[in-house]
Nucleic acid binder design. Structure first.
Length: 573
RNA sequence: UGGGCGAUCGUCUAAUGGUAGGACAGUGCCCUUUGGAGGCACUUGUCUAGGUUCGAAUCCUAGUCGCCCAGCCA
């Protein structure tokens, strides 16, 4: 594919694709019957640049780009930028960045605003053909004339204006002679249609607004319904995939296409992606940003692609998730656990391992020589030996996780406790001997002895330990800020709120926990944002985009699955 | 109450008149220098009622339930 200014990763061909779905079958059939003759399969991804892309868009992107690619076709990225009041260049830029990051590259970069001239000419034609008219009714009056779901609408008193008058008025609308909202251009179809979209829909409204691309060239802007089908047609889009709610609009798109005599694209609708504990509404995500409930569109708790990226999610995992979630015409809600599964699966294979202690507890190995440092050779990724090894310093004083020591161990607790022996990952067996407490009785230090013969983590006498814990040498430790993220919403359905409440009531107050003094092994000093790490036994992390060598900040992508937490919960200990 | 669309394990999805399968989640066991990962096993499903058929998730009829549409948003 061509026309990109940034490199996009190849889509791995080994990625599983759904065995079948109704979209693929329809395209396969159309290809087999040569419905579109010699034309290649052409699709498009048509976002409105009024916000950042989220994981729901990822599904649409995978469908639009993936399906075309499967059939040797092409995909355009087209901005449906027909409403200058909500659209911005920032969004245009972020969308291109995110589509590339997801792993796709477009054939052509298009804008509905490129077609404003053509659309205007076509409107003139419809007026001349007696199929469109200028209406002087106010928005409120138009609404009243529209009727209801069960009652037909009424014709506007301006519906039968002579063609010449319509032409004159519409040209003067375009020339800027009338104020916003004073008139609209409407299609003359059928005010009694049971499909409300056919009750003389508005084609153009007057909007004296500066457009992010066309500036002040226009003061009338086409409605989405008047622009979308024709934009597809202009681009020779063969298969126009969109979400379910647009099914009712198909008859209108066909009406425009037929009355204009232009190329008819095939529209096929599919279900939007919904995920538990997740909001996928651009309007509401914008509200979270504007009200400062999150730090921005790329807050790592956001379901935006930029937020997921900053959090450490990967395009590969998102694509695999979308493929497994599938596509249909039902309104389902996918468990967020499925997304998390595909992310863990991806990271498990590629994340470099490191040792990091989030909540440090000092351990002194009393029989280890003072001032001595050893360098342990450690595998960077036990799942991938080609990832090599690194040296990790070990010394007499180390940090371990507070959770990894209990003065009074509950049942089935295999970690360190007085008199018990555990393995320090890649180092030695140690046995806890005594504890040091502060004035409040908290254990602040554990004194242990080690078995010098167990270097590397095995005892020559074949002695077994029940547990392996991670550690960081105090003298060599890096201090870092670590941000632990939880779900942004506390309820599976964020919109499930009391009467008069809002989704904001369901915000999870514990969605972000900041740990300011985590202790990291030295190799993490130069971690780059986006590079995935598994902090062994803890979770997957990546350096934040604002992390520096002098002020390290790591974001937790996901915690590792925690069997012990389950046992602990079950036994109530 | 008009129109459109839909209904398969707890969740998502396959089966295109011929053994209801996969993934996630869950449970148990095995394995493990990450209580991670991995392996094995198990559990649970065709909205209802009729009909057509040797045979129905699939076709027909009638219901039930759910989603979408009354922006000069997309």
């Amino acid at each position: 594919m061509t026309n990109s200014n940034t490199a996009a990763p190849e889509t791995p061909s080994s990625e599983p694709r759904p065995a079948s779905n109704f979209l693929r079958e329809q395209i396969a059939e159309d290809a087999a019957t040569r419905k579109f003759g010699d034309a290649v399969i052409q699709t498009r991804f048509p976002p409105e640049p009024n916000g950042y892309l989220h994981i729901g868009h990822a599904k649409a992107i995978c469908i639009d780009f993936g399906l075309a690619d499967d059939f040797g076709g092409k995909t355009n990225l087209r901005f449906d930028d027909t409403n200058p009041e909500k659209e911005e260049q920032e969004y245009v830029d972020s969308i291109q960045r995110d589509v590339h990051w997801l792993g796709f590259d477009w054939e052509r970069l298009c804008y509905a605003s490129d077609y404003f001239g053509q659309l205007y000419e076509w409107a003139l034609k419809l007026i001349r053909d007696g199929k469109a008219y200028v209406d002087d009714l106010s928005a409120e009056e138009i609404r009243q004339h529209r009727g209801t779901l069960t009652e037909p609408g009424r014709n506007s008193p301006y519906r039968d204006r002579p063609v010449e008058e319509n032409l004159d008025l519409f040209q003067r609308m375009r020339a800027g002679e009338f104020p916003d909202g004073s008139r609209v251009l409407r299609a003359k179809i059928d005010m009694s249609s049971p499909n409300l979209n056919m009750r003389d829909p508005v084609m153009y409204r007057i909007l004296h607004a500066t457009h992010h691309r066309t500036g002040d060239d226009w003061c009338i802007y086409p409605m989405y319904d008047y622009a979308h089908g024709q934009s597809d047609s202009i681009e020779n889009v063969t298969h126009s995939m969109c979400s379910l709610e647009f099914a009712d609009h198909q008859p209108l798109y066909r009406w425009f296409i037929e009355n204009l005599g232009i190329f008819p694209s095939q529209q096929i609708e599919f279900d939007r992606l919904s995920i538990t504990y997740t909001l996928l509404s651009k309007r509401k995500l914008l509200q979270l940003v504007q009200e400062g409930r999150v730090s921005g569109w790329d807050d790592p708790r956001m379901p935006t692609l930029s937020g997921l990226r900053r959090r450490g999610f990967t395009p590969e995992a998102i694509r695999a998730f979308v493929a497994q979630a599938g596509v249909s015409r039902t309104n389902g809600i996918v468990d967020i656990e499925m997304l998390e599964h595909f992310q863990r699966d991806d990271l498990n294979h590629r994340a470099l391992r490191a040792m990091a202690v989030l909540r440090p507890l000092k351990v002194v190995i009393t029989n280890y020589p003072e001032g001595q440092t050893e360098h342990m050779e450690v595998a960077n990724n036990p799942e991938d030996l080609e990832a090599g090894t690194r040296q990790v310093p070990f010394s007499r004083e180390i940090y371990i996780e507070q959770d990894d020591f209990r003065e009074v161990p509950p049942p089935k607790y295999y970690r360190l406790s007085p008199g018990k022996e555990v393995r320090l990952r890649n180092a030695y067996f140690i046995t806890a001997q005594t504890v040091v407490k502060d004035s409040e009785g908290n254990v602040v230090e554990v004194h242990c002895t080690y078995d010098p013969a167990s270097r590397g983590g095995n005892s020559p006498d074949g002695r077994k330990v029940k547990s392996t814990i991670h550690w960081v040498s105090t003298a060599h430790a890096l201090t870092a800020e670590v941000r632990l993220y939880e779900k942004l919403f506390a309820k599976p359905d964020p919109n499930d709120c009391a009467e008069g409440g809002s989704f904001l009531d369901n915000l999870n107050p514990n969605s972000l926990e900041i740990i300011s003094d985590a202790k990291l092994e030295p190799s993490l000093a130069s971690a780059q944002p986006g590079a995935p790490f598994q902090f062994e036994r803890v979770g997957y992390f990546t350096a934040d985009i604002h992390s520096t060598e002098g002020a390290l900040v790591f974001n937790r992508t996901l915690p590792l699955k925690d069997t012990w937490a389950k046992i602990e919960k079950k036994t109530g200990s």
